[in-house]
């Protein structure tokens, strides 16, 4: 099995690559459609901003590729945000795979970004994955129809979404210790 880590133009693509290696999974980092076609599953990593990531994907003609793929696809943080219709971050039109808006956290007293370990209450298949995970985000989804995991910071927000072959997680599984490894194993088991 080989996972394609989609180069979305951000820094630190290696973290997710290393985390797959630790699980003994072969992976390739690429922005080439041809190369990504040859993989068994895709990961959209979570670094940068929604605007920059969407521009980069558009310029590489990867937006249609991701929209049309049948491969199991995991979007992490920003990678999850771009699965939605729209993000308030840079007022960005996203891929529109999952309906809904990505909003900015607003709070007079809690610091933004949310940075650190927060608890996820998982539903259905994700119930056993309820645990603490590492978050670093200023934007969030409050989608309820596709939510399979919830957390609370300032307000209740969606920390895991799934639609068909697309899974999105607001946290960083590659930085979430054993809990994160279990989450990645779950994603891989779906391929």
């Amino acid at each position: 099995m080989k996972i394609g880590i989609v180069d979305c133009g951000g820094a630190n693509l290696n973290s997710i690559y290393y985390s797959l290696n630790r699980l003994g999974i072969d992976a390739v980092i690429s922005s080439s459609k041809k190369e990504l076609e040859k993989t068994d599953g895709l990961i959209l990593p979570g670094v940068g901003s929604a605007g920059v990531v969407m521009n980069y994907l558009n310029s590489k003609k990867l937006d249609n590729f991701i929209f049309n793929t049948n491969k199991m696809t995991l979007g992490i943080c920003i990678g999850m945000h771009i699965l939605f219709d729209h993000s308030e971050e840079n007022n960005t039109q996203c891929l529109g795979i999952i309906s809904g808006q990505i909003k900015k956290f607003i709070s007079p007293d809690l610091s933004i970004p949310q940075m650190g370990w927060n608890h996820i209450e998982g539903l259905n298949d994700y119930k056993d994955l309820s645990n603490y995970y590492y978050f670093a985000n200023s934007f969030y989804s409050d989608n309820t129809s596709r939510a399979f995991g919830y957390s609370k910071y300032i307000n209740k927000f969606t920390s895991i979404v799934q639609k068909d072959n697309y899974i999105g997680c607001q946290f960083h599984p590659e930085k979430s210790s054993l809990a994160g490894e279990n989450f990645l194993k779950y994603f891989i088991s779906q391929i």
């Binding site: 290696n14 630790r22 590492y134 930085k175 054993l178 994160g180």
Partner: peptide, 11 residues
């Protein structure tokens, strides 16, 4: 730095 990133799974 690379060695740390390869071997640990926290930020």
């Amino acid at each position: 730095i690379e060695e740390i990133a390869k071997n640990i799974n926290i930020p």
